[in-house]
């Protein structure tokens, strides 16, 4: 036995392999125990009916998934994610691109503007939510107070209490917290654009819009794909800011898949059904990531 171990370590190649594995194993162990195993455990739980307390988890097969398909609350939550993804991607990327192009050739105060735009990015989504909950406060919140101060009392409303306005209002808060990120990344991308191409376009008589569309945006292709992937993943996973501002209300007007899953599994204790929702969420992010990776691979040169 000892002889074979000694032989094992005497073999240089095997000893190198052992060292290499020793580098990887601590991370691998953590990852398997706290990510991979729970993921399969979620799949198992999604096939059961369980309240989290009973000793027995009743196996029900695909029953939870059959219920999911007919669950209008799931579809409304997913539609809110969809709205979040579309608005929460287009708005910050457009603002970031716009500001990036304005600041591209450098203006006085560049560092100041960058510092300010990035400021909300360092805040936790929880803080962003609390700040904007105050902004939207129906009684004394700055938005309504400003409207009243300029005589537009009719426009003052309970923003987060209105089923039609609540979701756009939270998305605006999210954009406030996020566009600075897009701006900084786009600025970094703009530095890599070939100035000669811009000059060539100028010589050819391209106007501003044409330069933007034919030279700048193609030059930023990689950066824009990257940001879009980020915002998409954020849009699928959004939880904190909604939980802080509305907890999914009024009614179900701002529930998204993550808040619905959390609520079902931990507050209503439908652990089995909540797990099925969690699997749906996993699948959605898998599909989204997959689409974007393939677009990136195809577009990459």
């Amino acid at each position: 036995m000892f002889e074979s171990i000694r032989q094992f370590f005497a073999d240089r190649k095997l000893r190198d392999y052992a060292t290499a594995y020793a580098f990887v194993i601590p991370a691998l162990a953590m990852y398997v125990i706290f990510v991979v195993y729970p993921f399969f455990y979620t799949i198992y739980l999604s096939l059961t009916k369980w309240d989290g307390a009973k000793p027995v988890k009743e196996f029900v097969g695909l029953l939870n998934y059959q219920q999911l398909v007919a669950d209008s609350r799931l579809w409304s939550a997913l539609s809110h994610n969809f709205i979040w993804i579309v608005l929460g991607t287009v708005a910050p990327v457009a603002i970031g691109l716009f500001l990036g192009v304005l600041l591209w050739r450098g203006v006085r105060g560049m560092v100041f503007f960058r510092t300010v735009y990035f400021l909300p990015v360092v805040l936790a989504p929880v803080a962003v939510g609390i700040i904007w909950k105050w902004m939207y406060n129906p009684q004394f919140g700055p938005i309504n107070s400003t409207l009243r101060a300029v005589g537009l009392d009719v426009l003052a409303k309970g923003w987060l209490g209105d089923p039609y306005l609540a979701l756009p209002a939270i998305i605006l808060a999210g954009v406030w917290g996020y566009f600075g990120f897009c701006f900084v990344v786009i600025m970094a991308g703009l530095q890599n654009i070939d100035m000669e191409q811009i000059d060539a376009a100028l010589v050819d008589g391209a106007n501003g819009a044409q330069r933007l569309w034919y030279v700048i945006i193609p030059g930023l292709r990689h950066v824009l794909t990257m940001i879009t992937t980020f915002t998409l993943i954020l849009g699928v996973n959004v939880f904190d800011i909604i939980w802080i501002t509305t907890r999914g209300g009024p009614g179900r007007a701002t529930h998204v898949i993550a808040t619905y899953t959390y609520n079902t599994a931990f507050r209503e204790s439908y652990v089995g059904y909540g797990s099925a929702l969690a699997i749906v969420m996993g699948l959605v992010s898998l599909v989204v990531s997959f689409i974007f990776i393939s677009i990136r691979e195809r577009g990459g040169d």
């Binding site: 729970p38 969690a278 969420m281 996993g282 990531s289």
Partner: peptide, 13 residues
């Protein structure tokens, strides 16, 4: 693991 959202593992964890 980059594609697995926390929500997908939070319940059994």
């Amino acid at each position: 693991g980059l594609m697995v959202p926390f929500t997908a593992i939070m319940i059994p964890l």
